[in-house]
Design a protein around this nucleic acid. Structure first.
Lengths: 234, 234
DNA sequence: GTAGACTCGGTATATGGTTATCGATATAAA
DNA sequence: TTTATATCGATAACCATATACCGAGTCTAC
């Protein structure tokens, strides 16, 4: 059986033009951004890594390294310009160019995302929603039309939509992903707890609530359980 | 200014009894679990790391290492017992003992979580919801009562609730967290895009949509931008 | 104007997680 | 019964990320 070998090999081969920024740093940038916007609102114009780090519980060096990826240049003693920093992060993350997205699955979660106006500040605009439930189709939710899933592929192609958001039940997720791929969608933000099978060039990010839940319950169990050894000897 | 030094030092001091399992492994366990339950439903009773890995896009060694943390023991050639493996993961993650939780913020997202029946399979039961909006208080959403936030601390204490879920707007999140701490809650699952300030012994997990969004938009921007160098020389 | 303190940027080291390798063992086929 | 093969468990090498260190620059206070 060589399937596994092929798979892992593929994964590695896919990465030559791999991220020039570590994934964890990428994930921290929005946090810096959020804090910086707050500062800007307060009229503060310069900031140092130490202060940012103190606020977020990170050491100054790490903050500095993360920020360096955005290409920003600071000045000794004074630190960075807040405005420049915000700009640098937004540019780096591509938040200046809006990504238009389709969302599939207008349940509670889907509705929540559709109504999240703040996304537009972070380069995301959900332009339409899709569902298979005929009672939902035709409705308008948060000013977005709910269309039948069958139209997704065609519309995505014609409107050059690059991003798809999956908030449908797990059972339907793979079929939805297939439709998205057919419509030329490049990246999928997947909220369904399923491993999607898509071509290699498609970017998939899973928002896996169960992972978080696992961490939490493990830590809680650990805290309230009498401290026993985790592994039994054979 | 020594705040930062103290902070980072604290973080390290907090960790002596740190996770005996890497965070990424912990996050993968639910995925294995999900797949295994599917297998069990199909009547398959034994499984090898290679097959699990092939399904999830991981190499067999990694799967094996992850599973070892749960204390499971496999047999050469045959692999693991599916049933034992499921049991081992559930026990390890503490999914057998139900965690009762309070949820604060009955917006779309909060409602979505309240309605998510599957959580109960993963050791989570949301027993009540809270809000400050008087039009929501008194309602029942998915068979859970919506109570005024003021009652949270008292009820949490009397019912020995250990877990709090924050799905309210960012502005209110810190105040809610404070209430939770006052009520003796040990762990917080935070969906608000805010860095919460809580005592050291409180476990906080942020479900940060913006981090994911940042990754996605960076990768999309990178794909569609002409490949230029990321950093300008000084 | 000078001394001192703070902060940046670059390089080096340490840590933690992932991947590779090897020997042992159980099953299945000859 | 013997041989071949798939798989596990353990140890070791490797890689990515996080942390520490050091020199250089600039602002503040005296």
């Amino acid at each position: 059986m060589v399937i596994d070998i092929n798979l892992s090999t593929l994964q590695r081969l896919k990465r030559p033009e791999a991220p020039s920024i570590p994934q964890p740093s990428l994930a921290r940038l929005p946090q810096y951004h959020h804090y910086l916007v707050d500062l800007a609102d307060k009229g503060i114009s310069r900031i140092s890594c130490s202060v940012i780090g103190a606020y977020l519980g990170l050491i100054p060096v790490q903050v500095r390294k993360d920020l360096q990826y955005t290409g920003i240049i600071g000045k000794p003693k004074t630190g960075y310009s807040v405005a420049e920093l915000i700009q640098a992060i937004e540019t780096f993350l591509g938040w200046n160019n809006i990504n238009e997205a389709f969302l599939v699955g207008v349940g509670n979660l889907g509705t929540a995302l559709l109504g999240h106006e703040r996304f537009s500040k972070f380069g995301l605009r959900i332009v339409a929603a899709f569902d298979t439930d005929s009672t939902k189709i035709g409705q308008w939710i948060h000013e977005k039309a709910v269309l039948p899933l069958e139209q997704l592929a065609d519309l995505a192609q014609r409107m050059s939509i690059h991003l798809g958001i999956i908030t449908c039940p797990a059972e339907a997720a793979q079929a939805v992903a297939d439709e998205m791929v057919k419509g030329g969608i490049q990246a999928i933000w997947n909220f369904a707890p399923v491993k999607l099978r898509v071509p290699d060039h498609i970017i998939v990010h899973n928002e896996d609530l169960y992972s978080t839940l696992a961490s939490l319950s493990w830590k809680l169990a650990r805290r309230f359980r009498v401290p026993v050894q985790e592994k039994e000897a054979v």
